[in-house]
Design a protein around this nucleic acid. Structure first.
Lengths: 335, 335
DNA sequence: CTGTTAGCGCTTTCAG
DNA sequence: CTGAAAGCGCTAACAG
């Protein structure tokens, strides 16, 4: 069932039917009604590819993320998808699994016009950003969220990473901690570095500047991370607190502490950047810095739509910084 | 940059270039090489809509789920997306937010050929299945996973819900529980009913057939559910165990128990169908029935691809039942 | 207000 | 092995 057949059924020209269906005001109300009714009756659905081809737009955005099965990202997608749905847009999902090659190849694919815009959170291995520049140069609207590329001139939606790192560290210090370790996810990600700088500055301010043995650079190899953390916790001068850059590292730390019979929070306190509200509820000893993940996704989508609607006209769209919340539970209060 | 321009640059006809790019064997190896090189040089990317239109296929599948920010579904999408990626397919995500109208309208949209196939897990409100039949009748390949429509003749990927419900209940009984409540998510979902039947039969087998006051029919209204569960736990004959049909209800129960100063597992034991491995790690008192969510998504995608590849030919694709695992932690062992 | 017509960019016969 | 040409289904000038 296509326009041609529908038009024949109606004894109208293809273009009139097309116009009627898109509610053009060149068409009389009465004809519109008839057309709409017939379309419904015959279960007509416009072929999206034909109209995409003709109109040179896809009504689709892509969301490129490291991993969908991650509380933060799935919440962010939720926000973005809900926003897109309202705008009658479709959402394509691509996972990079924190693999730079995957990210590059995905973005290459997206240069062909399949999407009108891109929402992206970088892989933790992304240092070189040529593939991102290609997208910019092609004029495809792109918005970064959370894991952003600092050297690309495009809107970035982030949270107050530096302040959060600072506050969390200060909170630990105020509760008696003196040897605070920092678990980073990647030294290539600006969010990780910002969080670390907050941590470093807070420590410095209180005169307990950490040596670099207390900063552990983890990566995507879970096994390897476990070994690193275990080593850290088995040292004679083991830390009395851990600030984990992401949830996964906090969970690993937690498990290792159990294994080593280290009591949380008595022997060691843990604070994590996290969105695992549920886990936090289930485990009151876990203090978290909770990012407004849903809002980040929503805001990112909103900015992307501004960009798309003003393609060309709009020179730049302001970056947005949302606030994370330090949710203090028993762990750190009980000094 | 399109085929025409590329062909002009190469002094070849459009069709030859097209063939070379799709590696047709009608083209000499030497020409192919030249074409490929030039395409790369000029950063040519085929317009997907033109080829979709021409070939009448989209290389895209849709995944329709209640909520993406849910451990089970995000893991399932992970499985499906990873599989699709291997097959060079794209994945569109649609959330229904457990709203039947949303589900209907999404499926209506998908009748226009935007996708070659659909993976779906039903909303908990889906009783009438006409919208699903429409898809079937249109000949669009569809595969159900987890929350399936029993009366539709299409492949269904599920887990052993009845057995899991049975086993979990028996486990509680063996550990001394006598008044086991069941929290259902919906009386319209076959998975919920199967789990409940397992629960009922196990109870019957051990002579503690529950009265229907111990079966709570929850729905999507979180506040309402909390009230229902609270009432249940405040009754003089309150249950000594809860079997929660989904994770969210277990978490709510957990929170309410804390509020009411009920000790878990001493006063009351909780078992949940769940995929919150992390939460379970963080809270050893939570015993779970863990579904192989990633595998379900992957398997569903795999079956969908079989269906799509054999469109028409294949009469039916067998249903698949994967096994969930009862992961017993401290809670229920400590009788 | 309605119809005619020329493509959007690609694939695929069919003809050399 | 290569080229010419038709057409996928729709939209948007343009012409009435």
């Amino acid at each position: 069932m296509n326009l041609k057949e529908l038009a024949k059924e109606l004894n109208l020209s293809i273009s009139s039917v097309s116009r009627a269906l898109r509610d053009s005001k060149e068409i009389s109300v009465s004809t519109k009604k008839i057309v709409l009714a017939k379309a419904k009756e015959l279960n007509y659905h416009a072929n999206p590819f034909a109209s995409n081809l003709r109109r040179q737009e896809s009504k689709t955005i892509a969301v490129v993320i490291p991993e969908i099965a991650n509380n933060f990202f799935s919440l962010a997608i939720n926000g973005a998808e809900s926003y897109a749905q309202k705008k009658d847009y479709h959402v394509l999902i691509y996972q990079t699994h924190d693999n730079l090659q995957q990210e590059i190849s995905t973005l290459k694919h997206l240069q062909n016009g399949r999407v009108d815009g891109i929402l992206i959170s970088l892989s933790s291995q992304t240092a070189n950003t040529d593939h991102l520049k290609d997208i910019k140069n092609k004029g495809i609207p792109i918005v970064f969220f959370d894991r952003v590329a600092e050297n690309i001139n495009a809107p970035k939606i982030t949270t107050n990473d530096y302040e959060s790192g600072f506050k969390a560290t200060e909170h630990l210090i105020e509760n008696g901690c003196k040897k605070i370790a920092f678990l980073s996810i990647s030294n290539k990600l600006s969010i990780a570095n910002k969080r670390m700088n907050g941590y470093l500055d807070a420590a410095k301010k209180h005169g307990i500047a950490p040596d670099y043995k207390q900063i552990i650079n983890c990566d995507t190899d879970k096994e390897g991370n476990t070994i690193l953390i275990k080593k850290l916790l088995q040292r004679p001068d083991r830390p009395d607190a851990i600030l984990a850059c992401v949830e996964e590292l906090a969970v690993s730390s937690y498990v290792i502490c159990q294994e080593l019979k280290l009591n949380i929070p008595r022997d060691i306190k843990i604070i994590s950047f996290s969105n695992l509200q549920t886990a936090a509820i289930l485990n009151p000893s876990l203090t978290t810095i909770t990012q407004p993940a849903y809002e980040i996704g929503r805001e990112a989508a909103s900015v992307l739509f501004q960009l798309m609607e003003n393609k060309g006209t709009l020179q730049r769209c302001g970056d947005v910084v949302l606030n994370s919340e330090l949710i203090i539970r028993n762990s750190t209060k009980m000094a």
